[in-house]
């Protein structure tokens, strides 16, 4: 009993100290964002003397902050919608026809994409999209959808292997075709894996910096949040308070979302990795 208590106390101490390391950068970000330059000069670590939101207001007014949030939401939402239609569709076709050469080949071809790091195609993608006049949000969305195939199809085909063929059969006897069967029976059954695909890809797209840097950086009107915060840095390098206000405000949407859906996010990321 006593050694158990000691273990408990030790664990709590260790975890509390670790927590300070995790939270310190966030504490600094938030407090510096709420101070004036004079206050910061006195101490980086002290709490702000009052609730001062001037830096946030300045960031929001000076930069086109709402535009960037809207852009991020738009790109993420449309990409995800397309993925959640296309990936289950093709995965269903593949999983029910794996004995045919075409489907097997398609599956292997898409899966081999896992071995290609983004940087291997970064330069040609820029060239290609520029040739197609697609250095814009549409081009970005198309790239996200295409790059999500390898992992998404791998997860969904793996899931569908455990969905019994008898379901297809029964539905076919009832007179439903392939499409009806897919939409009304298979798709609803796939919800757990679709949720995983949704979470993995939403986080990736929302936070991604490399693709927008390649495809959108020339037009400030198109910027997503990560691009905004990157370009913001050079503009406000001399004013810590404004810079940290920018960092904090660009994290705010995901912080709020995490607050409400943390169980799902943690579960989704774990599922996606282990499968």
């Amino acid at each position: 009993m006593r050694s158990n208590k000691l273990v408990q106390i030790g664990s709590y101490t260790f975890l509390f100290i670790g927590m300070l390391f995790v939270l310190a950068p966030l504490y600094l970000t938030l407090t510096i964002a709420m101070k004036t330059p004079q206050e910061t000069a006195e101490s980086f670590f002290a709490l702000p003397t009052r609730l001062y939101f001037g830096n946030f207001i300045e960031v929001i007014n000076k930069a086109n902050f709402y535009t960037f949030v809207t852009n991020s939401v738009y790109v993420t939402a449309i990409s995800i919608l397309l993925m959640l239609l296309l990936i289950p569709m093709v995965s269903y076709a593949i999983s029910r026809n794996l004995n045919k050469r075409y489907y097997k080949l398609l599956y292997l071809l898409v899966l081999s994409g896992i071995f290609v790091p983004f940087q291997a195609i970064m330069l040609p993608i820029y060239r290609h999209m520029s040739n197609l006049k697609m250095l814009n949000q549409t081009g970005l969305i198309i790239m996200y959808v295409t790059l999500s195939f390898a992992q998404g199809i791998f997860l969904c085909v793996g899931f569908l292997k455990n969905v019994p063929l008898e379901l297809d059969e029964a539905s076919n006897i009832d007179g439903s075709g392939v499409w009806r069967t897919f939409i009304s029976i298979i798709y609803p059954l796939m919800m757990p894996i679709i949720a995983t695909v949704l979470i993995l890809n939403s986080l990736w797209i929302w936070n991604d910096f490399q693709l927008p840097l390649i495809i959108l950086n020339r037009h400030p009107d198109f910027w997503t949040l990560p691009l905004f915060i990157y370009n913001f840095k050079s503009e406000y390098a001399s004013n810590y308070n404004l810079a940290f206000a920018g960092f904090f405000i660009s994290m705010l949407p995901i912080i709020i979302l995490y607050g409400f859906t943390q169980k799902h996010i943690i579960g989704g990321l774990t599922e996606g990795a282990i499968k």
């Binding site: 898409v110 195609i121 199809i153």
Partner: peptide
């Protein structure tokens, strides 16, 4: 219909992944 289900993915994959590669 099974084949049609794979067409959008196949096209996107060829045009925006294999072609750039």
């Amino acid at each position: 219909i099974f084949f049609l289900l794979t067409v959008p993915t196949l096209l996107l994959y060829i045009v925006f992944f294999l072609l750039p590669l």
